[in-house]
Design a protein around this nucleic acid. Sequence first.
DNA 1: AAGACTAGTGCAACCGTTTGCAAAGTCAAG
DNA 2: CTTGACTTTGCAAACGGTTGCACTAGTCTT
Lengths: 341, 341
Amino acid sequence: MSVVTGNSKASTTSVTIGDIARVAGVSRSTVSRAFSRPELLSAETVQRVKAAAAQLGYVANHAARALSTGRFGNVAVVVPDIANPFFPPLVRRVQTLADAAGFAVFLGDSDEIADREANLTSRLSAQVEGFVLAAPRLDEQRIRELDATRPVVLVNRDISGLARVLIDPSGGLDEAVAHLQRHGHRSLVYLSGPRESWSDQQRRAALLSAAKRAGLEVTIQELGRPSSAAGRDAVGGILSSGATAVIAFDDVVAQGVMAGLALRGIDVPRDISVIGCDDTLASGTHPALTTISAASAAAGDAAAELLLAVLSSGERSEARVAIATHLVVRATSDKARDDIS
Amino acid sequence: MSVVTGNSKASTTSVTIGDIARVAGVSRSTVSRAFSRPELLSAETVQRVKAAAAQLGYVANHAARALSTGRFGNVAVVVPDIANPFFPPLVRRVQTLADAAGFAVFLGDSDEIADREANLTSRLSAQVEGFVLAAPRLDEQRIRELDATRPVVLVNRDISGLARVLIDPSGGLDEAVAHLQRHGHRSLVYLSGPRESWSDQQRRAALLSAAKRAGLEVTIQELGRPSSAAGRDAVGGILSSGATAVIAFDDVVAQGVMAGLALRGIDVPRDISVIGCDDTLASGTHPALTTISAASAAAGDAAAELLLAVLSSGERSEARVAIATHLVVRATSDKARDDIS
DNA sequence: AAGACTAGTGCAACCGTTTGCAAAGTCAAG
DNA sequence: CTTGACTTTGCAAACGGTTGCACTAGTCTT
């Protein structure tokens, strides 16, 4: 793939196929075909046109092409918060695969706000061929409407009839509950994520079900936006619940909880066990966080492949790709303390 | 800002200003003006056109508009690695400010490779009005060529004549060196980042200068891609250097170093002090990392403002915005051990 | 040697929006 | 009742590509 040539004469005003046609002594159609359908032309002509194009420093005008073909060569990936470490690996994979397939990618950050997400998608839909919506906060109807216009691939949102990639927390949560039970815990707190979050609903349901089977008691404590600060502020409630373990909506929240506990001089895991979700912080927390893995990069791969397949085949997909999770035991989970109040 | 209406009749084939014109009983020019220059029309006409547009679920075709006006309404932000925690806050701010100004944003991830960056920028330049290049790996000439086509704002790259936002590490490194000296360290290792990285060059130079003034010895150890794994693999070299302190190119590398040291049973900070850069991991490492702050979100704000100012005014900027840094002392730095070998 | 193909190229229409220019209408001043 | 200024609207030509169709030369068939 060649790159901007140095000796281009490219002035401020860009060079068009008309310029190339003049230099190469052919018609504009021929120039166009030299790029899009070279097999229709004689090798010699293609050669001559490309030489002229290179000499002039030609770069195709995307807008013109898009207007003519209806194909934009763009896709969009929309996330609730790119600063949440779950998303960058996912976005990175989407970008890489899309780029390899010749697509450029728009990034939208909805700031966890459904209406902002709606604005982003409606504005982007005018110049993209498809969407990857990661953990969308939009209601189902608006997502369906969007999909009616442009193919959508969902990540962590389960809407029948749409293509979707789902990280299934139940495996990891089963393991987590078993792990806690084995260590003598009887009662735990779940710090939930945003209400609109499919992931949170799944995690909540899977946890309640696993806990019920295991005979553990679960208190659900609602958080708004999942952030370190929210986790830190939640410790008061956690402590007053009398639970000996916490499962947090994600690692960032878990890390906030640990910071909050440290501030109060409460030892993890001696006094309380903490388990995160997503495994985004690697072993970088203090102590190293027990967590439930969720390969966001793999989800990005799957989503990108799904979307690209739809775009190249033209056929909608209803694929439902599930990605399994498991518990990664590190240093924040251990035996329950005895003196449960 | 209103959002997709529910009762739209939008079929697969999108509605154009022609459709609106027919419904509203005016010409296409009038429809166009109702949106772009409503002050030229009677209030009543504007009203009627907008009603028709809403009824039909009209969404302007970006490509057509761009082709006609030469303005794309898009900007691009290109980073070496979106999964590196330094960049997401920056990208987020750029996206937010650009969005507020009516621009959509492309994300490019160069994977730390200059040629990939060149490909990204040259392909994106056909559909964006300007670039934010964060820590670009491109050589100066190619950046200047790009800037000749579309306004560029650099982050952490200092090229005269271009608009740029620079995080100046010297303040933080002076403090770090002073801090180490005060704790009895005489010799330290600097784990450098990518050769093409302006940040690395700055950090290296600032560190050497501060160390020289303080009479500390510095060994520079080259890393390739700054990653946790690279940091982990660097501990052999660090230990054999006999230094009592390490300053790493960034927090991710520092975290890798700490993981590597832990594997060998070496205690931080008792046996060796570790200092990171960028303060991207908050206090989430184990032990909490002493680091040099670098407000990447602030850099994103500044870069976005610079670019948007250029785009709205039409006048190129040569602004050079410097952002100061300082040392954040946490738990990984302390007194030098005595038995220096 | 005539007709049927085929390969290679050009013509011209089209994609949806913007915009310079002109036409038509309104109104007040002379 | 002109006339000039102003307001409101439409006409038509861009913008830079793509693509169906037609045309010209060869090349094959028979």
